[in-house]
Simulated assay, not measured.
Amino acid sequence: MPIFVKIETGRVDKPTFDKYVPAHKAYVEDLIAKGHKARTGYWAEFGGGMMVFEAQSMTEAQEIIARDPLVANGCVNYQLHEWRIIVE
């Protein structure tokens, strides 16, 4: 299954962002349970993070990202890319 990467930067203050983190974590756990092999995290320096996951297509990946609570609640700006691995 193709691998996708959402690279994000925050667009709201930390208290607003932190309000949606538990829902984001639960969402990622649900993606894992559904077989999307999702991983999420943030940069050591302030201001952004990344989520890596599998989806059948870019369309499905876009749908997955649209339902992410951090995106749905306007907490982040993001870019979505299909990642094609050349060495494993």
Rank of each mutant, 00 (worst) to 15 (best):
residue 1 M to E: 10
residue 1 M to F: 07
residue 1 M to A: 08
residue 1 M to R: 09
residue 2 P to R: 00
residue 2 P to F: 04
residue 3 I to F: 01
residue 4 F to S: 02
residue 4 F to P: 00
residue 5 V to Q: 05
residue 6 K to W: 00
residue 7 I to S: 10
residue 7 I to G: 08
residue 7 I to P: 03
residue 7 I to V: 15
residue 8 E to R: 00
residue 8 E to H: 05
residue 8 E to K: 07
residue 9 T to F: 08
residue 9 T to M: 03
residue 10 G to C: 02
residue 10 G to F: 02
residue 10 G to N: 10
residue 11 R to K: 15
residue 11 R to F: 01
residue 12 V to D: 07
residue 13 D to L: 03
residue 14 K to Q: 04
residue 15 P to W: 04
residue 16 T to D: 10
residue 16 T to H: 08
residue 17 F to E: 09
residue 17 F to N: 04
residue 18 D to F: 11
residue 19 K to P: 06
residue 19 K to E: 12
residue 19 K to V: 08
residue 20 Y to D: 07
residue 20 Y to T: 01
residue 20 Y to P: 01
residue 22 P to D: 09
residue 22 P to W: 09
residue 23 A to S: 09
residue 23 A to E: 15
residue 24 H to R: 10
residue 25 K to E: 15
residue 25 K to L: 15
residue 26 A to S: 14
residue 27 Y to F: 15
residue 28 V to C: 08
residue 28 V to A: 04
residue 28 V to P: 06
residue 28 V to I: 15
residue 29 E to I: 01
residue 30 D to F: 01
residue 31 L to D: 00
residue 32 I to P: 04
residue 32 I to R: 15
residue 32 I to Q: 14
residue 33 A to W: 05
residue 33 A to Y: 04
residue 33 A to E: 13
residue 34 K to R: 15
residue 34 K to D: 12
residue 35 G to I: 01
residue 36 H to G: 05
residue 36 H to W: 06
residue 36 H to Q: 05
residue 37 K to R: 15
residue 38 A to R: 11
residue 38 A to Y: 09
residue 39 R to I: 13
residue 39 R to S: 11
residue 40 T to F: 06
residue 41 G to D: 12
residue 41 G to I: 09
residue 41 G to F: 06
residue 42 Y to V: 11
residue 43 W to P: 00
residue 44 A to T: 11
residue 44 A to K: 08
residue 45 E to K: 14
residue 45 E to A: 14
residue 46 F to L: 05
residue 47 G to E: 08
residue 47 G to C: 10
residue 49 G to S: 03
residue 49 G to T: 03
residue 50 M to K: 03
residue 52 V to C: 07
residue 52 V to R: 06
residue 53 F to W: 03
residue 54 E to F: 02
residue 54 E to I: 12
residue 54 E to Y: 12
residue 55 A to M: 08
residue 55 A to K: 08
residue 55 A to Q: 03
residue 56 Q to K: 15
residue 57 S to N: 02
residue 57 S to K: 07
residue 58 M to N: 06
residue 58 M to P: 12
residue 58 M to A: 14
residue 59 T to L: 11
residue 60 E to D: 02
residue 60 E to I: 04
residue 60 E to F: 00
residue 60 E to C: 13
residue 60 E to L: 07
residue 61 A to V: 03
residue 61 A to L: 04
residue 62 Q to E: 15
residue 62 Q to S: 06
residue 63 E to V: 02
residue 63 E to A: 14
residue 63 E to N: 13
residue 63 E to D: 13
residue 64 I to G: 02
residue 65 I to R: 02
residue 65 I to N: 05
residue 66 A to M: 01
residue 66 A to L: 08
residue 68 D to F: 00
residue 68 D to S: 05
residue 69 P to D: 07
residue 69 P to L: 11
residue 69 P to E: 04
residue 70 L to R: 07
residue 71 V to C: 05
residue 73 N to D: 12
residue 75 C to Y: 02
residue 75 C to A: 10
residue 76 V to Y: 02
residue 77 N to C: 05
residue 79 Q to W: 07
residue 79 Q to K: 08
residue 79 Q to T: 12
residue 80 L to Q: 00
residue 80 L to P: 01
residue 81 H to W: 09
residue 81 H to C: 08
residue 82 E to Y: 09
residue 83 W to C: 04
residue 83 W to Y: 10
residue 84 R to L: 13
residue 84 R to K: 15
residue 87 V to L: 14
residue 87 V to W: 01
residue 88 E to P: 06
